[in-house]
Design a binder for these strands. Structure first.
Length: 923
RNA sequence: GCCCAGGUGGCGGAAUUGGUAGACGCGCUGGACUCAAAAUCCAGUGUCCCUUAAAGACGUGCGGGUUCGAUUCCCGCCCUGGGUACCA
């Protein structure tokens, strides 16, 4: 009886579904294990063969953990809000909810065919009001919180108000937009509106003016990549830099905790590095400079206080608040002209034209606190308003950007560090933090490190500055002028934002007649009828960004139907956090930062039980496409096989990989593929048309998309699962190549045949031989080791070797085959279930335990020593395990093969590594 | 520019971390079974020298080093992929 995968896979998929085999509940009697995949955005194209890679790996691991006795949580859902459905809605008028629903059904259908062990009772969708109720709820909690640096956690905003009422801002050490100073008395005298405005400066979710690309004609904010040369890519309308009132999340408050947490989690070093760079901690000092003929103090941030004697000018960001007060009447026109130039520059231009040096003198001078010299204050776009204080002290001798600026505007360059090798200042700055200070008054002769500490201390002593740590991580802009996203639970009264009462949640997304901005530039929600509270206050028109819904979904899976809480505390206390998270590394600076931040906030609130949401993270690689080409002889409809194409002038054309098998083109299918090829002629080699090939991204336009359904149709889901794993290490990017799939397909059929005698299913109850037991235990050991280390690609060869060896031994013994079936179950669950039931078991294989391997079946009596002479292996020597080094030494000398290699030479040394190798050094 | 990962046959990739490099699979070559095909099975397959075999030499991006022994460790380069960039 041949293995009928179609029938078997269908049978077990419906069995699992009907019996809810993978349903999971809290069970304190068992250890928990939480395996999570990054949930997909359900796009219209459906799944291609690359998408399930991570799902298959996580499925193997969770099935394995289950067999190992863990209570495994393994859920799946959909990141359902997103741009493509909205774009489609704009074009067709079809509601994005309908498109999304359709796509989800298609995804589910495709996933079901692969045989995953998801607990579908826990499915969530971010666009479901029952789900986004808790996204909105969390936002309200953020609005009602501030971040206290002393306690290193989020606190209720009411505590801050209490502090303001009693001591004002005195002794305050909290996260904020800008430093504020007022007394309790002053606070009490402020109007409600003023007080609310001040509180926004401290809330974790806050409304503030932020710089954005604004396109007036399109009536929307644009991302940097949607703008080119100051014009919008769509329409070509002018785009300006504009401050807009936007919602933001104070992610920056958690910068240090996000950094520290990385040391406690099991992620790849490269991913941790990406996050560390993104957070960008730098230790330095804020220093205040007096301004000549003014009461103003100019505060700058520097990481190199040691170079303060080398400061020859100061630079302000064009957007800096210092610009206005520091511009003198004589320079007013020049500054205005420069600011106008800068405002027309887009972020993109500033980024691409990094080498372009521009700037203008303000007319004012700062006083160097250490030399008392007057130094000119300039404005330049190379200084960013959003980092540090938006102003710098420029040390052209030791900073390459300051150097370029000084050269361009002919400003003095003062060397203050001697690198000991006579660095030539005319060739560029010396940026390294190594050397001795020169031309630097009190710190002359000090090493750089010493000098940094000395000046930092001196600055604090004089009260002109303090040590400070800056982070590159910015707050997350949280508003989008889009329709298909979570509505904010916010209404406006007196121009101030207020949160809806929690009892009003969820605030459901309203219907609109069109998915475009309104005529007067409001977001699409401006079109909704009655978009106001019961009291008549207008509701927020923006929606939340894509990352809102994906920032706490892992918590919701624990308790997805709870209507009273994001997650029940006892349930959360059991599942705690994700033990294994699988997904792409493209989320390193997005989702994986936001989700950690969001979870830390919920942890501070007492909702989450662990500070870090994802204990271990694996980034699966991308599966690329393998494109096929045909070669048309130019000006004809004749196609030449790849081996002969150099004899003609040809054009390379992508051909649908689905009509090519093993690089051989199906000629009839090609003629039927497109009308223009209906009369195609071919020049063959060896009677076949061979196509060329290349590795490219899998995409429709390259005709190289492989649909998992097609593979399952032809080879079955188990083969697909095995082959995706066999392709290579999980983390690598690798091309899909259908050619190789035969190998694993053959393996499965061979495995099946182990249970057959002739045409019938037949296993023997005979006792296994020593040799058979060795094969079994060797395999289980290897497979277990590989699964634990996520090298599924090497455990499949272990099964293949095992099957070949058992076939050679003609072994069909139950004692060997039963444990093997269980070990194979995580990889090929359908076949395993079928064999298990054929072996006479009445309950699902998921109820079994993973087999244990025992060392005693693996130990040998002898070891075959490779004997090498001067590092080159010459022969093998079989020795008992009990042999001493002296035994081995004399055996090597006595071996007849040795005489050949020793001829005319003497043994200088003999290295014997027990159970490894013998190396004879001769000379 | 800076940070990270990687470079092994015709191809995807193994090598239990310093101990027989190329497991396993694909592809290719030959054979068996077939009227034939498919399927299946068996054998071979890093390079060079050679009619063949034995034997040998070379071989893990390049150049050095440590070691009895290096794909693995160290130093200096080259290339590929990823991240990031006026972050002071």
């Amino acid at each position: 009886m041949e293995y009928n995968f179609k029938e078997v896979e269908k049978k077990w998929q419906s069995y699992w579904q009907e019996n809810k085999t993978y349903r999971v509940e809290v069970d304190p009697s068992k250890p928990k294990y939480y395996v999570l995949d990054m949930f997909p955005y359900p796009s219209g194209a459906g799944l291609h063969v690359g998408h399930p890679l991570g799902y298959i790996a996580s499925d193997i691991y969770s099935r394995y953990k289950h067999l190992k006795g863990f209570n495994v949580l393994h859920p799946m859902g959909y990141d359902a809000y997103g741009l493509p459905a909205e774009q489609y809605a704009i074009q067709t008028g079809q509601h994005p909810a309908i498109t999304t629903e359709k796509n989800i059904r298609r995804y589910r259908e495709q996933m079901d065919k692969i045989g995953f062990s998801f607990d579908w009772d826990r499915e969530i969708r971010t666009c479901d009001p029952e789900y986004y109720k808790w996204t909105q709820w969390t936002f309200i909690q953020m609005f009602n919180s501030f971040y206290c640096y002393d306690k290193q956690k989020a606190m209720p905003i009411s505590e801050l108000v209490k502090a303001f009422e009693t001591v004002g801002t005195q002794g305050l050490n909290v996260a904020c937009g800008e430093e504020m100073n007022f007394t309790a008395e002053e606070w009490k005298n402020k109007s409600t509106k003023e007080q609310q405005e001040i509180l926004l400066n401290y809330r974790l979710a806050y409304l503030a003016d932020t710089m954005v690309n604004w396109c007036p004609q399109l009536g929307t904010v644009l991302a940097n990549d949607e703008v080119k040369e100051g014009l919008s890519i769509r329409g070509g309308y002018p785009v300006v830099q504009k401050k807009m009132r936007q919602w933001s999340l104070r992610v920056s408050a958690y910068a240090q905790r996000l950094l520290d947490g990385l040391d406690r989690i099991d992620w790849s070093d490269s991913l941790k590095d990406i996050q560390r760079n993104w957070i960008g901690r730098s230790q330095g000092a804020d220093v205040k400079f007096d301004v000549k003929d003014s009461d103003l103090k100019l505060e700058i941030f520097t990481t190199r206080p040691d170079t303060i004697f080398g400061v020859s000018f100061m630079v302000l960001a064009p957007e800096s608040d210092y610009v206005k007060p520091l511009t003198t009447p004589e320079q007013a026109d020049a500054v205005a002209e420069y600011l106008d130039y800068v405002s027309k520059r887009t972020e993109r231009e500033r980024q691409t034209e990094v080498k372009k040096v521009t700037g203008v003198f303000t007319g004012s001078y700062a006083i160097n606190p250490f030399t008392n010299e007057a130094i000119p204050i300039w404005i330049s776009e190379y200084v960013l308003s959003g980092y540090g204080t938006g102003a710098i002290m420029a040390v052209p001798g030791h900073d390459s950007r300051d150097y370029a600026f000084a050269k361009h505007f002919n400003l003095p360059i003062i060397p203050v560090i001697d690198d000991g090798e006579g660095h030539d200042m005319s060739e560029g700055s010396y940026d390294a933090k190594v050397g001795k200070l020169i031309n630097s008054g009190i710190i002359n002769g000090m090493e750089v490190k010493e000098a940094i500490a000395y000046i930092a201390k001196e600055v604090e002593k004089r009260g002109i500055g303090k040590s400070k740590i800056n982070y590159r991580l910015r707050d997350a802009i949280f508003s989008r002028q889009r329709y298909w996203g979570e509505p904010f639970p916010v209404y406006y009264k007196d121009d101030l934002p207020y949160m809806l009462d929690e009892s009003k949640l969820p605030l459901e997304l309203p219907e609109v007649d069109k998915y475009l901005p309104t005529e007067n530039g409001e977001p699409p929600l401006g079109r909704a009828k009655n978009w106001k509270t019961e009291e008549g206050y207008p509701l927020e028109l923006n929606t939340m960004p894509g990352f809102a819904g994906s920032s706490a979904y892992f918590l919701r899976y624990m308790d997805p139907h709870n209507n009273n809480a994001l997650v029940d505390h006892n349930i959360c206390n059991y599942w705690r956090n994700v033990d294994l998270y699988l997904g792409g590394s493209e989320h390193a600076t997005g989702h994986l930062i936001y989700a950690r931040f969001w979870n830390m906030f919920l942890y501070d609130l007492g909702v989450a039980c662990e500070e870090e949401p994802f204990k271990k993270l694996i980034n699966q690689g991308m599966i690329q496409g393998r494109s096929n080409f045909v070669y048309r002889i130019q000006g004809t409809n004749t196609f030449v096989s790849v081996g002969l194409k150099d004899q003609y002038k040809t054009t390379e054309i992508h051909v649908d990989v689905n009509i090519v098998k093993n690089d051989v083109l199906d000629l009839d299918a090609f003629r039927a593929w497109m009308p223009e090829y209906a009369n195609a002629e071919f020049i063959l080699e060896n009677g076949k048309y061979i196509c060329g090939w290349a590795i490219e991204k899998m995409s429709k336009s390259m005709f190289n998309v492989i649909n998992p359904d097609t593979i399952i149709e032809e080879y079955g889901a188990d083969t697909l699962r095995l082959y995706e794993m066999f392709l290579g290490p999980l983390e690598f990017s690798k091309p899909w190549d259908t050619q190789g799939i035969d190998g694993v397909y053959k393996f499965l059929r061979k495995f099946w045949r182990l249970f057959q005698v002739g045409e019938d299913f037949c296993v023997s109850d005979e006792a296994p031989s020593k040799e058979e037991l060795k094969v079994l235990h060797k395999t289980i050991k290897k497979v277990e080791y590989d699964i634990e280390n996520f090298s599924f690609n090497t455990s499949i060869p272990a099964f293949m070797i095992c099957t070949n060896e058992l076939t050679a031994l003609k072994c069909n013994k139950r004692a060997i085959l039963e444990p093997l079936v269980i070990a194979l179950a995580p990889f090929a669950p359908h076949m395993a279930e079928e064999l298990w039931s054929l072996l006479g078991h009445t309950q699902s294989i998921t109820k079994e335990s993973f087999p244990r391997w025992e060392e005693k079946f693996l130990v040998e009596d002898t070891f075959e020593y490779p004997v090498s002479f001067n590092g080159k292996v010459r022969f093998k020597l079989s020795m008992p395990l009990t042999a001493t080094n002296a035994d081995i030494e004399s055996a090597v000398k006595a071996a007849p093969e040795s005489t050949k290699w020793l001829e005319g030479k003497e043994i200088k040394k003999m290295i014997i590594v027990p159970k490894k190798i013998v190396n004879v050094v001769i000379g």
